[in-house]
Design a protein around this nucleic acid. Structure first.
Lengths: 240, 240
DNA sequence: AATAATAATTCTGTCCAGCGGAATTTTAAT
DNA sequence: ATTAAAATTCCGCTGGACAGAATTATTATT
C-alpha cells in the first residue's frame, strides 16, 4: 500500500541549490576567530567583505535566533545558540564511538596526545582529541581550527585530498607525515591518513608532543603506531 | 584628528532588522534534537513548517558551509562547522572566568553537581557545569537544552524572567526554587537567580543530585549555599 | 568648546533572488 | 505491474534584500 523513502538523486553532482543571504549570514559567523571573539560592525563588515548596512540587516536575524550577541559597547560576539548545535552534532556523529577509543589506545601506547582532524575548507578541524598521561604534553582543544599548511596532520590532509604538496611523493611513499617545529617551535607531530568505507579520505590521525620526544630515534616507532592505528581505524570503518 | 567608535543607537528598541531566509535556515538547524540527530527531508520540512522545496534550497547553502551534512541514505544531520563556533563562543564569554570558579566552590562545598543555566526561548540552556566528587551524581552536559517547565532552575528562570508561574509568590519569597523528581524521578535540585551588572536576570545557579540526598533535612543547607553562591556571583558581576 | 574625523545607523528606489506550488522522477512496498 | 509516498526539478510572480547616500552619534584633538 505504501512507498518508502527513496535515496536522494543519484550522485549526478548537480549544482547544489543556494540562498545568498544564508551563506552571507553563515560567513559572518565564520569571521570570529580565536583572539577575534569580539568584533565591531566595521570589523565584521570588512572581514566578510559586505556592506555595513547588509551586515546590520543579517545580524538582526542572527541575533534574534541567538547565534549572535551584541554587547553594551556595540561589539558583536557569538551567541549561546551555538552550544546545543555542537552537542547534537557530536551525539549524531557515527565516528564518536569508533574514533575516540582508537585515540585512547594510541595515547596510552605512546604517552602522547592523540587527535583526529578533518579538512574543513582551507583549514583542518580538530574533531576529537585524547590527552596523553605525561605532565608536559601537547595542548589541544576539540573544535580548534588550525592551518592546513602547517603540521603533520595538515600535510596528510593536503596530500590525500588532492591538493598539491611539495613533499607529496615522499609522504605518500612513507604512508605518514612528520613535522618538527612547524606550528610551534617546541612541538612535533606524526600523522597518517584514515579512509572511510567508500575508500575516500576521512581525516588524519595525529600524535603530537614536545619536540624533544620526537627525535630520530623515537619517530620510527611513533610513526609505526600511528600508521597501524590509522589502518585499524580504516578497516573498522570499512566493516562497520 | 580622529573619531572613535560610538555606542550603537540609544536603546530605542527599534525593531531589529531581519532577513527571512536566514531565520528559516537557522530554524532548520534548531530542528535537530537529542534523539533526533538524523532527519529526512520530510521530517525536517514538517518540523520547521516549511515546504520541502524551500528546505532543499536552504539546505543547499547550509551544506556548502558545513553546517549540515547529508548522509548516503538521504538523511540530514548537523555538520562539523558547528564545533568551532561553540569553541569561540566559550573563549569570548566573559562569564567563563567568573562562573566556573563559583561552580567549583559550590560543587566542593556540597559534593553535588553545580550548573549555570540561561533561558533560551522556551527552554533552558546549560552553559556551564561542574561535577561533584561523589560516585553517584547528577549527570549533565554543557550545551544541553532542557525544558523550562521542569526542574528548579527552570522555575527560577520562569519566575524572574517575567513568565507566569504557579508557585511564583512562594519562590520569590524564598529566593530560591526546589524540585524533587520533576525531570527525573530519582533526581532533585535547588536553584537561585543570578543577576547581571544592570540588575537584569542573567541565569540560574543550580545544584542537582540524587533525591535521597535532597531530603527535608538537607535542603535548607543546600538552598542556603546556592543562594549565597548566587548572591556572590551577582555581586562579582556588578563589580567586574 | 569647537572642530574634525570616523563609526554606526537609517532610509529608499531598484531589481533580482527566493518563494510556493505544481509537475515530474525516483524508490520501495504490495 | 501497480501504487503510494518521498525527493527533486521547474518556473512565474512578487516582496524582500541590496547598495549606497544621507544622517546621526561619539570621541580625539586643538
Amino acid at each position: 500500500m505504501a512507498g518508502r523513502p527513496p535515496k536522494p538523486r543519484t550522485g549526478s553532482e548537480a549544482e547544489l541549490p543556494r540562498v545568498e543571504a544564508v551563506e552571507r549570514a553563515l560567513a559572518l559567523l565564520a569571521c570570529f576567530r580565536e583572539g577575534r571573539t569580539h568584533l565591531t560592525l566595521k570589523e565584521l563588515a570588512d572581514a566578510a567583505g559586505l556592506y555595513a548596512s547588509t551586515v546590520l540587516r543579517l545580524s538582526g536575524s542572527l541575533e534574534r535566533s541567538g547565534y549572535l550577541r551584541r554587547e553594551a559597547d556595540g561589539r558583536f560576539r557569538l551567541g549561546p545558540a551555538v552550544l546545543p548545535l555542537a552537542r547534537i552534532y557530536r551525539l549524531g556523529s557515527p565516528l564518536e564511538g569508533i574514533i575516540r577509543p582508537a585515540l585512547q589506545d594510541l595515547a596510552r601506547e605512546t604517552g602522547e596526545t592523540a587527535a583526529f582532524y578533518t579538512r574543513e575548507g582551507e583549514a583542518r578541524l580538530c574533531l576529537y582529541r585524547v590527552n596523553g598521561p605525561r605532565p608536559l604534553r601537547s595542548h589541544l582543544e576539540e573544535g580548534s581550527l588550525l592551518p592546513l599548511a602547517l603540521g603533520a596532520s595538515g600535510h596528510v590532509l593536503s596530500v590525500w585530498s588532492g591538493i598539491g604538496h611539495p613533499r607529496e611523493a615522499a609522504i605518500r611513499a612513507a604512508g605518514h607525515a612528520v613535522s618538527r617545529g612547524e606550528r610551534d617551535p617546541d612541538s612535533a607531530a606524526v600523522a597518517a591518513p584514515v579512509f572511510g568505507a567508500d575508500g575516500r579520505l576521512l581525516g588524519a590521525l595525529g600524535l603530537s608532543g614536545p619536540i624533544t620526544r620526537f627525535d630520530a630515534a623515537a619517530v620510527p616507532r611513533l610513526a609505526g603506531l600511528v600508521q597501524a592505528g590509522a589502518a585499524r581505524l580504516s578497516a573498522a570503518l570499512r566493516a562497520g
